[in-house]
């Protein structure tokens, strides 16, 4: 996000979408911030369908994905034909206002919901063709989920939460414990293995959730508003962690988000509105000032 100028004292202010008043004169900057956001998200547009790439490049593909919810007699379309390709090792953000079909698309990709028509492929496997068992297998081994509300099992400790998917995967106890410990160390919670979720802060809970998502070495991490319930600093921590996993671990990250901080780390941003893809932005087209994280953390 670009800098904005205070209309009163002409001070240049860096904004993350969280600054609303000028730190010098206290002038209301909400309009300027909103304008800056609008410019950011409008800067570049591209058609989704990238024919030049071979299909093997794509870990997730959707074709003509539609979903209609029936509310009694009324049919509410949530998705109206979405074609989306996600490259292997990509960090993709899905943005859109609430009710835009963002979560629905997300659930389709995650195999949590069945499309009304169209198909969704993960590693060239059509999800609609899978049996319940194969779908569970896919969720267990290939996908890692991170939720806005963390969704840890409240009666289990951090370590037990992380090892649960490994139990499903049939891993041995010793190996499971070792790997659970390693993952919690990875997310910086090596000293909180036996804490219950309610004994952890929001940021810590989300880090446990990230560790759990990594339990069975997934190829894709699906993060549904992962920073939605976190404050600025912890939100950035989670984003940085996801980015590190993406860059260092080669995990494809698909994240539904409102959070503008996410734009900074995303390779592509998919904008969705009224159940259809509006436009796709590439990171190099957005020209964000990277390296803001450290400064913001120091001041926040």
């Amino acid at each position: 996000m670009a800098n904005i100028k205070c209309p009163k004292c002409s001070k240049e202010i860096e904004t993350w979408g969280v600054v609303t008043v000028c730190p010098d004169c206290g002038a209301d900057l909400r309009d300027q911030v909103a304008e800056a956001e609008r410019i950011t998200v409008q800067r570049a547009a591209e058609i989704v369908h990238d024919e030049s790439a071979t299909t093997h490049e794509f870990i997730v593909r959707t074709r003509g994905l539609t979903k209609v919810y029936k509310m009694g007699e009324v049919e509410v379309p949530a998705l109206r034909g979405v074609d989306l390709d996600v490259r292997r090792g990509e960090y993709l953000s899905i943005m859109g206002p609430s009710g835009s079909g963002k979560s629905t698309l997300f659930n389709m990709i995650g195999g949590l919901d069945k499309p009304t028509s169209g198909s969704c492929f993960i590693d060239e496997v059509d999800l609609a063709q899978l049996t319940a068992f194969e779908l569970a297998w896919l969720r267990c081994r290939k996908l890692g989920y991170i939720f806005q509300t963390f969704n840890l099992i409240p009666v289990m400790t951090a370590l037990e939460n992380v090892t649960l998917p490994m139990i499903f995967a049939g891993m041995g106890t010793d190996e499971m414990m070792e790997r659970g410990r390693m993952l919690l160390e990875l997310v910086g919670l090596g000293d909180r293995l036996n804490h219950k979720p309610f004994e952890l802060s929001g940021g810590q809970q989300q880090r446990v959730a990230v560790a759990r998502a990594l339990a069975n070495s997934p190829s894709i991490i699906l993060a549904d508003e992962p920073t939605g319930n976190l404050d600025l600093t912890t939100g950035k921590e989670i984003i940085a962690l996801l980015k590190e996993l993406n860059v260092g671990g080669g995990v494809t990250v698909i994240s539904a988000t409102h959070d503008l901080k996410m734009i900074d780390v995303s390779d592509r941003i998919v904008h969705i509105r009224d159940g259809a893809l509006e436009r796709i932005e590439h990171r190099h087209e957005i020209d964000l000032e990277v390296g803001r994280l450290g400064d913001e953390e120091a001041s926040g």
């Binding site: 068992f133 995967a169 049939g170 041995g172 190996e175 390693m182 990875l186 990594l214 590190e244 995990v251």
Partner: peptide, 24 residues
Amino acid sequence: NVRELAKRAVETRTEERLGEQIAL
């Protein structure tokens, strides 16, 4: 150590230690 650890976490691929099963 995140990058280092992340690599380890993901590299410990599943094929040899896990069968094609889901169990509780």
